[in-house]
C-alpha cells in the first residue's frame, strides 16, 4: 500500500497528489511514468511523473478525471492509501545538447511538461513555454511555468485568459519570427501533438512528443501500448514514452486511444458514487 501524502485540486477536473514511494522517487526522472491501481480489483493505469522529492521519498502525480479509475482515485484523500504504485517506467526525456527549447503543453499535459521545463531551465537552456487550456477555469501550473520559463505564453480556446486560440498559433509565430529552437517538446492531447508536429515538420524543427497510450503492465510484456512510429511497431512503455513526433502515426494512435470509450462510459454511468462525484 502506498500513502497519499498530500492532495491538491488544481481545477475542477484535475488533481495533484504526492505519493510516498521512496524507491520510485529515488530513480524518477522527467519523462518517465508510473502505473497505479487504486484498489485491489482496480485497473492498472499509467500516469506520467509530474515531479519527485528524492529526500522526502515522494512522487507527484497530476491526473484528470476522465474515467472510472481516475474518479475513484480522486475520491481518496491525503492520509489514505492506494493499492499499488510501480515505477519509474519508460525512458527519461533526453535533453542533452539543447540550449534553446520550446515546451508546448496542452491541458493536463502541462503537468508532465512542467518537470521537463524545470529540468531544461536548471540545465541552463533558454526555455520558452506555450501552455494551452480550454478556458480560464482550467488553467493549471501557470506560476510554476513562469518560474522556469524565459518566456511564457498562455492560450485559451475561448480567449477567456491569455491569447485566444490553439497553442500552434504562437508556436508558428515564434518560429517564423526567427526563434531558432533546438527542439520542440509537445505534451498534451493527441490531436494537439499532431497539430504541433504539422507546424514543426514543415519548419524542420526537431520535435519530441510524449505518448500516453492504453497500457496494462507497463514493463514490456503485454504489447497493448504499441504505436506505429516510422512504419515500425514501437512500445510506449519500454521504447518511449517519448518519440520523434515526425514519425508517429497519430491517426492510428487517436483511434486506438478510443478503443474502450463505450466501456468507460458505461463504467461511469453505472456507478452512483462516480455520478455524484462528477457533478
Amino acid at each position: 500500500m502506498f500513502k497519499i501524502v498530500s492532495k491538491r485540486k488544481l481545477n475542477s477536473t484535475v488533481t495533484m497528489m504526492e505519493i510516498y514511494a521512496p524507491l520510485v522517487a529515488k530513480k524518477a526522472q522527467a519523462g518517465q511514468f508510473i502505473i497505479l491501481r487504486v484498489n485491489d480489483d482496480g485497473e492498472r493505469i499509467p500516469l506520467t511523473i509530474a515531479g519527485f522529492d528524492r529526500e522526502a521519498g515522494t512522487v507527484k502525480i497530476i491526473f484528470q478525471i476522465v474515467g472510472a479509475t481516475t474518479a475513484l482515485l480522486n475520491i481518496k484523500n491525503a492520509g489514505e492509501y492506494i493499492q499499488d504504485f510501480v515505477g519509474p517506467l519508460g525512458c527519461a526525456t533526453r535533453i542533452d545538447g539543447i540550449s534553446k527549447v520550446c515546451i508546448v503543453g496542452g491541458g493536463v499535459g502541462c503537468a508532465i511538461a512542467l518537470p521537463l521545463a524545470q529540468k531544461l531551465h536548471e540545465a541552463g537552456a533558454e526555455v520558452h513555454s506555450i501552455i494551452g487550456f480550454r478556458n480560464k477555469d482550467l488553467i493549471i501550473l501557470e506560476d510554476e511555468f513562469k518560474r522556469c520559463s524565459d518566456k511564457l505564453t498562455v492560450m485559451t480556446d475561448d480567449g477567456s485568459y491569455g491569447g485566444k486560440g490553439f497553442v500552434t498559433a504562437p508556436l508558428e509565430e515564434a518560429i517564423n519570427s526567427g526563434e531558432n529552437y533546438d527542439e520542440v517538446f509537445a505534451i498534451g492531447p493527441l490531436i494537439m501533438m499532431k497539430s504541433v508536429v504539422a507546424v514543426t515538420k514543415q519548419k524542420k524543427v526537431p520535435t519530441t512528443v510524449s505518448m500516453n497510450p492504453i497500457m496494462i503492465d507497463g514493463t514490456g510484456m503485454c504489447g497493448g501500448c504499441r504505436l506505429t512510429v516510422g512504419g515500425n511497431i514501437k512500445f510506449a512503455c519500454v521504447d518511449g514514452p517519448d518519440f520523434n513526433g515526425f514519425d508517429v502515426d497519430f491517426d492510428e494512435a487517436i483511434v486506438r486511444s478510443a478503443m474502450y470509450k463505450e466501456f468507460e462510459a458505461r463504467a461511469c454511468k453505472n456507478c452512483n458514487l462516480l455520478k455524484s462525484e462528477v457533478k
Binding site: 504489447g223 504499441r226 511497431i233
Partner: peptide, 11 residues
Amino acid sequence: EGLNGVYSANE
C-alpha cells in the same frame, strides 16, 4: 495490426 480489436495473446 494497429486496428482496434487486434491484441497480442499476452495482452
